[in-house]
């Protein structure tokens, strides 16, 4: 039954906040492995809520009610018995603002590993270098790894945030409008980078505009006010959407 290409399957997921704001209604969606899946749509549609449900970050928010299932490698991650710490290591997240931890560049990358109890300097050095190289940041920071992470530029900080996730060797990377605070050059770097590494990971991306959605999507899902309107391969969804609302949004009639 399980599709080998399918990494995450969301079944009838509904989420409601206690104040009744942004919510999701009966979402069913299959997220393919080794591709970029884009969740897009106007603000307040529930994209970020869905993203944060995938690594249980909603646990921190005021969520009143969750129903349905999210199957990751065949296990329902919404199950209260799930080890969320392990889950978050396998499903990493990059946020919309490049929030570097108030530590050095090196420590930002080694942070997740040290939490796991890794103390061996050689292992950490190796992992930090590998992650920074994969995030295309090594050449810019290798000679100042001990500097505070806040000293590098915004674009570099966001790549550092990516490196920090990559250091944990995750299976899935969630990106919540990762380039909304970046200039076009830095944005292009992140986009190019994700295209390069997507084959080794499963990427779920909430873009901050339709253009980016269209550029990045191997697979796309359109959300409107908590409802999944339609989903499909990027090339068909952006060119020939089935639903009029998708059509209107993609062509810029509203949004």
């Amino acid at each position: 039954m399980v599709n080998p290409m399918e990494k995450i399957r969301i079944e009838h997921l509904s989420i409601r906040y206690s104040d009744g704001t942004e919510s999701l209604r009966d979402i069913c969606l299959s997220i393919p492995a080794n591709q970029i899946t884009v969740l897009f749509g106007p603000a307040g549609g529930g994209k970020s809520t869905l993203l944060r449900a995938l690594n249980r970050l909603n646990d921190l928010a005021d969520v009143q009610e969750v129903s349905g299932q999210i199957l990751f490698n065949g296990v329902n991650i919404l199950d209260p018995g799930v080890n969320v710490v392990n889950l978050r290591r396998k499903i990493g997240m990059v946020f919309s603002r490049p929030v570097v931890l108030p530590l050095s560049i090196y420590q930002n990358v080694s942070y997740g590993l040290e939490l796991m109890g890794e103390r061996r300097k050689s292992k950490l050095d190796e992992a930090v270098e590998r992650a920074l190289r994969r995030a295309a940041l090594w050449d810019e920071v290798y000679d100042r790894l001990k500097d505070p992470a806040s000293a590098i530029s915004g674009g570099q900080q966001q790549r550092l945030c990516l490196a920090r996730v990559l250091a944990l060797e995750p299976e899935v990377i969630l990106l919540d409008e990762p380039t909304s605070a970046l200039d076009p050059v830095s944005t292009a770097r992140i986009e190019g980078l994700m295209q390069e590494i997507k084959e080794q990971y499963t990427i779920v991306w909430v873009p901050h505009n339709v253009q980016q959605a269209a550029r990045m999507a191997d697979y796309a899902a359109f959300f409107l006010q908590g409802e999944l309107v339609e989903h499909g391969p990027g090339e068909t969804l952006f060119v020939k959407p089935r639903d009029q609302r998708t059509q209107d949004y993609v062509t810029g009639r509203f949004g």
Partner: peptide, 17 residues
């Protein structure tokens, strides 16, 4: 900032860590 806490948790930290 709250963002530090969110980021730390997202990297697999417990609340106490």
């Amino acid at each position: 900032p709250q963002a530090f806490r969110t980021v730390s948790i997202s990297l697999g930290a417990t609340r106490w860590q």
